[in-house]
Amino acid sequence: MERRDYIGIGVLLAMVIAVPFLVDNPYYLGVLVFTALNCLTCIGLSLLMGYAGQISLGHAAFIALGAYSSALLTTLAGWSPWAAMGAGAVISAVVAVIVGVPSLRLKGHYLAMATLGFSAIVHIVAIAAVDITGGPQGIGGIPYLSFGDLVLDTDIRFYYFSWAVVIIGLILALNLIHSRMGRGLRAIHGSEDAACAAGVHTALYKIQIFIISAVYASISGSLYASYATYIDPGPFDVMHSVLLVTMVAVGGMHRLWGAVIGAVLLSLLPEILSSFSGYFQMIGLDYSQDYDILIYGGILLAIMLFLPEGLFSGGRSLFRYLYQKFSPAEEEG
């Protein structure tokens, strides 16, 4: 990790601690918990997109695997939520191997389609296997996580816990990219041939990164289950996977910090939009969640066309560009 990563983590930590003193509305704390869960998934996805150069359209399904593992093992088998979370992570890792090995042994982007298909199947199973998953009704009564006597049953407790997990996840991911393996992955990005010639086992690394990112998503799903205490198939559809890809792309996929920024911005966006819904109505637009699909599609397209490095890196170059474009003009004139 570099010095600025430590500074970044310090800033993030300070913000995480400070925010509850500014917002103590439980609804907004809840939104920030979901933001943290998205952050965690996006950090993993950013490893995959930015460092392994692959897209997954099935991360929502890994979240679902984590969530359903937690829900089922705690409610039906009476496992501790921690053990269930671990089991979910193992299951996700195994599924990642099954989906990833055939697709990642090859060059190209077969993974995107394979994960899309896997995601569709998970969604179908979640709805159709009513006996196990409860079908569309879902599963309720999922126990809270706890540390001994400290039960994470309030928004504020879970808020601190979930962001602590995000920071740990971020530190681990930063360790990874600043290692021999991370260097190998960045090398693949520069020249796959030269990386192979230097002995980098590209396929293996891509698979390992895919597994790691699946585990991140799975843990985020387990956290979701034990925070909400109720899950149904609704949130785990392909659209959510696309949203996660959008978050990573918006922030900037070649920087882990980009994933954090993108996840925060886009997780808060619906709140911002609905707080403006009054204004939308004034200009004759009836904002509803239905339009999110257009909004996210539009954002993803605009970022990829105009700011492919994402807000985090692109913002700086954009600023420089605007500065050059507008300030010298005044001097000349």
Binding site: I171, L172, N175, S179, R180, M181, Q208
Partner: peptide
């Protein structure tokens, strides 16, 4: 240095 060591230890 493999995957786990890379994850768990800072450079």
């Amino acid at each position: 240095t493999g995957l786990f060591l890379s994850l768990l230890t800072p450079p």
